[in-house]
């Protein structure tokens, strides 16, 4: 095979696509992630085409001499990968739409462990408050997180309250952080769960010990 005639422009385009795609992939909104995946897919396909070497005539038998043809194998691979990326983009779009109908937004949800930590913090601030409100737990259990911490409180109660007393300042800090984030127009998950409409009435009780 001839040495690859990789010119600087195409290399820069592939690099730029990879950069932009990776950046978008790290965002919270599913639409951005989707576009990031599309960009990454383009970058990969372009790279596959580039590694085929110099460009040439269409690789069809009998139309031109084999030396003048371009390499058909990477084109075949690029074609396969285009089909696969296209199908999966559509699938992801359908998932994002379903997520939007079910949850009302297209943000990536916290994973279970994160939700558990957030909830543990909120439970601690509830412990420090005067009342334990069953409504709050009900409202939370309709959420997406699957935790069972409150069930085990019989065993871990002691340590939890101990942590609660020492960590109280931090928990309050997290709440104000959440509020600040909301003012900036980019509510975090914690803030939305903390101050969302689902448990709006509970919120004052929870936050004022």
């Amino acid at each position: 095979m001839t040495p690859t005639a990789l010119n600087l422009t195409s290399a820069a385009v592939v690099g730029g696509l990879f950069t932009a795609g990776t950046y978008l992939l790290l965002q919270r909104s599913l639409m951005r992630i989707l576009i990031g995946i599309v960009l990454l897919g383009h970058a990969t396909n372009l790279l596959l085409l580039l590694v085929g070497g110099r460009s040439g005539r269409a690789p069809m038998v009998g139309t031109s001499a084999p030396e003048q043809m371009s390499n058909p194998l990477p084109q075949g691979m690029a074609l396969t990968s285009i089909v696969i990326t296209f199908a999966l983009t559509t699938f992801l779009l359908a998932l994002a739409y379903r997520s939007w109908t079910l949850l009302g937004d297209d943000e990536v949800r916290d994973d279970v462990e994160d939700a558990r930590i957030v909830r543990l913090q909120r439970d601690l601030s509830a412990h420090r408050g005067t009342t334990t409100d069953p409504e709050q737990t009900d409202a939370e259990q309709t959420g997406t997180e699957q935790t069972d911490t409150e069930q085990d409180s019989a065993e871990t109660d002691g340590s939890e309250t101990a942590v609660g007393e020492t960590d109280g300042a931090e928990t309050d800090g997290a709440e104000t952080d959440g509020a600040r984030d909301e003012e900036e127009g980019q509510p975090t998950q914690a803030a939305r769960r903390g101050a969302g409409p689902a448990r709006g009435p509970d919120h004052p009780e929870g936050s004022t010990p």
């Binding site: 992939l25 599913l30 992630i33 995946i37 990454l40 897919g41 970058a43 990969t44 790279l47 596959l48 580039l50 590694v51 194998l73 990477p74 691979m77 990968s81 696969i84 990326t85 999966l88 699938f91 992801l92 998932l95 994002a96 379903r98 997520s99 079910l102 949850l103 990536v108 949800r109 994973d111 997406t144």
Partner: peptide
């Protein structure tokens, strides 16, 4: 849906890396 989302995005990213690897190997 939440679990599937994570799974699909991570797997898709690794598939694209796989393709990149194939291109570089080729």
């Amino acid at each position: 849906i939440r679990a599937g989302m994570t799974y699909v995005i991570v797997s898709l990213t690794s598939s694209l890396l796989f393709l990149t690897m194939i291109a570089l190997v080729y």
